[in-house]
Amino acid sequence: MKVILDQDKCVASGQCVMAAPEVFDQRDEDGIAVLLGDDFDESERPNVEQAASVCPALAIRIAEGE
């Protein structure tokens, strides 16, 4: 599963890290979210979908068929 994170939209709320800690982390210097890899196991999909739904900046999506 490919996850797309638009760091330019990120407002450093940390909601994604709480929802999907195996997929997201935050930079120490500014709190902007980062991905912990390039490709994730399909078992993380519910967590990533939750992270995308609670992201106040709408900066997360799952790349379908890309």
Rank of each mutant, 00 (worst) to 15 (best):
residue 2 K to T: 08
residue 3 V to C: 05
residue 4 I to K: 13
residue 4 I to N: 13
residue 5 L to G: 05
residue 5 L to S: 07
residue 6 D to V: 03
residue 6 D to R: 08
residue 7 Q to M: 06
residue 8 D to C: 00
residue 8 D to N: 13
residue 8 D to P: 00
residue 9 K to P: 03
residue 9 K to M: 10
residue 9 K to V: 02
residue 9 K to W: 03
residue 10 C to I: 06
residue 11 V to D: 05
residue 12 A to E: 04
residue 13 S to G: 13
residue 13 S to A: 15
residue 14 G to T: 08
residue 14 G to I: 09
residue 16 C to K: 13
residue 16 C to Q: 11
residue 16 C to S: 10
residue 17 V to H: 07
residue 17 V to P: 06
residue 17 V to I: 10
residue 17 V to S: 10
residue 18 M to P: 00
residue 19 A to N: 04
residue 20 A to L: 08
residue 20 A to V: 09
residue 20 A to C: 10
residue 21 P to N: 11
residue 21 P to L: 10
residue 21 P to E: 14
residue 21 P to W: 10
residue 22 E to M: 12
residue 23 V to P: 07
residue 25 D to F: 01
residue 25 D to V: 01
residue 26 Q to M: 11
residue 26 Q to I: 03
residue 27 R to E: 07
residue 27 R to P: 00
residue 28 D to C: 00
residue 28 D to A: 13
residue 28 D to F: 03
residue 29 E to L: 07
residue 29 E to G: 01
residue 29 E to H: 10
residue 30 D to R: 00
residue 31 G to F: 07
residue 31 G to T: 07
residue 32 I to F: 08
residue 32 I to P: 02
residue 33 A to C: 02
residue 35 L to G: 11
residue 35 L to P: 11
residue 37 G to H: 06
residue 37 G to K: 03
residue 37 G to M: 03
residue 38 D to R: 09
residue 39 D to A: 10
residue 39 D to S: 12
residue 40 F to Y: 15
residue 40 F to C: 14
residue 41 D to V: 09
residue 41 D to K: 13
residue 41 D to S: 15
residue 42 E to I: 12
residue 42 E to R: 09
residue 43 S to T: 14
residue 44 E to Q: 15
residue 44 E to Y: 14
residue 44 E to H: 14
residue 44 E to W: 09
residue 44 E to G: 00
residue 45 R to N: 04
residue 45 R to H: 05
residue 47 N to R: 15
residue 48 V to P: 12
residue 49 E to S: 07
residue 50 Q to K: 15
residue 50 Q to M: 15
residue 50 Q to Y: 13
residue 50 Q to I: 06
residue 52 A to H: 09
residue 52 A to Q: 12
residue 53 S to I: 04
residue 53 S to D: 15
residue 53 S to L: 08
residue 54 V to C: 09
residue 54 V to G: 04
residue 54 V to M: 14
residue 55 C to T: 05
residue 56 P to F: 05
residue 57 A to N: 01
residue 57 A to I: 02
residue 58 L to D: 11
residue 59 A to V: 04
residue 60 I to S: 05
residue 60 I to Q: 06
residue 60 I to E: 06
residue 60 I to H: 04
residue 61 R to Y: 08
residue 61 R to E: 15
residue 62 I to N: 04
residue 62 I to L: 14
residue 65 G to P: 05
residue 65 G to F: 08
residue 66 E to G: 08
residue 66 E to Y: 02
residue 66 E to T: 02
